[in-house]
């Protein structure tokens, strides 16, 4: 019994020491915003977190960013939502692993009049006031503009996308193809073909496109894996890289190297920092009583080529 009591006292003292030191105590005036993400370990999510925390400091709010260990942990994400709801946050920013599974829990936030801002892939529900995400259609259209300019408005461009089922795959293919057709009618598009974001599969697609159309002078790859496949194909076939304009999406060491060496002309970069920042901006607006927002808030994207890749704003969104 004695030992128990002393153990209890030690633990309680430790608790006191920890919390007075950790400074988690938030004055009541500072609004508390919960951010439940799809993960926390990937560089992409860490960048979202940084954007949110910086903006929170600016707006005098407290944010708590969390996400499950893996993107298949649907149930732990529900437990996180429950714990955050119990803290009565001023607002919730949420990227659902599974929108439908999260439905009943989100309803509880709505019932408690806690505004919900969706981010990244969004939430398939009418509860969120808005969705903060990359406008993939516009970002892919920028890639088409860069391609069209570089080719002088004529030529043949192969398009390789990761898939035709995910939102990002659909939007990027549409953004690129539509912009090209509208603005550069003399450029012929081969594809889009879908390689599952897999390096080998995407490389095979690029090779078969080249075999059927030896006069191809441009490639667009819709994500890291797709463009990586194109780069592999071009390297393996020992093609003359000065005759090809290759444009990619996102970063990764391979693309960064290819852009620096001149093999790849450039790539469109999403801005995870911008996603985190805008989440907090719109959460604060909602806390201050605004309810009417655009359905989607674009968080912007950047163009990285040999001349811009070392700029601070581009470096900030690159990941390896």
């Amino acid at each position: 019994m004695k030992r128990f009591l002393s153990l209890a006292v030690v633990v309680v003292l430790a608790a006191a020491a920890c919390s007075s030191g950790s400074g988690t105590a938030a004055p009541a005036a500072k609004p508390y915003i919960s951010i439940v993400s799809k993960g926390f370990q990937h560089q992409f999510w860490q960048a979202v977190k940084k954007g949110a925390e910086d903006e929170a400091t600016k707006e005098n709010a407290t944010v708590n960013f969390m996400g499950p260990n893996t993107e298949s942990d649907v149930q732990p994400q529900m437990d996180m939502l429950n714990a955050e709801l119990a803290k009565k946050p001023a607002a919730l920013c949420f990227a659902a692993l599974d929108s439908k599974a999260a439905g009943p829990t989100l309803q509880k936030f709505k019932d408690a009049n806690i505004p919900v801002i969706a981010f990244d892939s969004g939430v398939d529900s009418d509860i969120p006031l808005t969705t903060v995400a990359t406008d993939n259609v516009a970002a892919a259209a920028l890639a088409a503009d860069k391609m069209g300019d570089k080719l002088g408005g004529k030529g043949k461009v192969g398009v390789i996308i990761h898939d035709q089922t995910s939102r990002t795959g659909i939007d990027r293919a549409k953004g690129f193809v539509d912009e090209m057709k509208a603005k550069y009618p003399n450029i012929t598009i081969i594809g889009p073909q879908y390689g599952g974001g897999d390096l080998a599969k995407s490389a095979d697609l690029a090779k078969s496109m080249l075999a059927a159309n030896p006069d191809i002078n441009g490639f667009f790859g819709g994500n890291e894996g797709s463009i990586g496949g194109v780069l592999n194909a071009v390297t393996e076939l020992h093609l003359d890289q000065t005759k090809l304009t290759i444009i990619g999406y996102d970063s990764g060491q391979k693309q960064i190297d290819a852009i620096n060496s001149g093999l790849e002309y450039g790539a469109v970069q999403q801005s995870p920092i911008g996603i985190g920042q805008k989440c907090v901006v719109y959460a604060m607006k909602a806390i201050n009583g605004e309810t009417k927002f655009d359905k989607v808030i674009d968080t912007g994207f950047l163009w990285a080529d040999k001349t811009t890749i070392n700029n601070a704003d581009v470096q900030a969104v690159l990941y390896k």
Binding site: L7, A8, V11, V12, A14, A15, A16, C18, S19, S20, T24, A25, A26, A28, K87
Partner: peptide, 16 residues
């Protein structure tokens, strides 16, 4: 029990 008390003390200290 100790664990629950531990969190209760912590919560009281941060005002919840």
């Amino acid at each position: 029990i100790v664990l629950i008390l531990f969190f209760q003390v912590w919560c009281v200290l941060i005002g919840t």
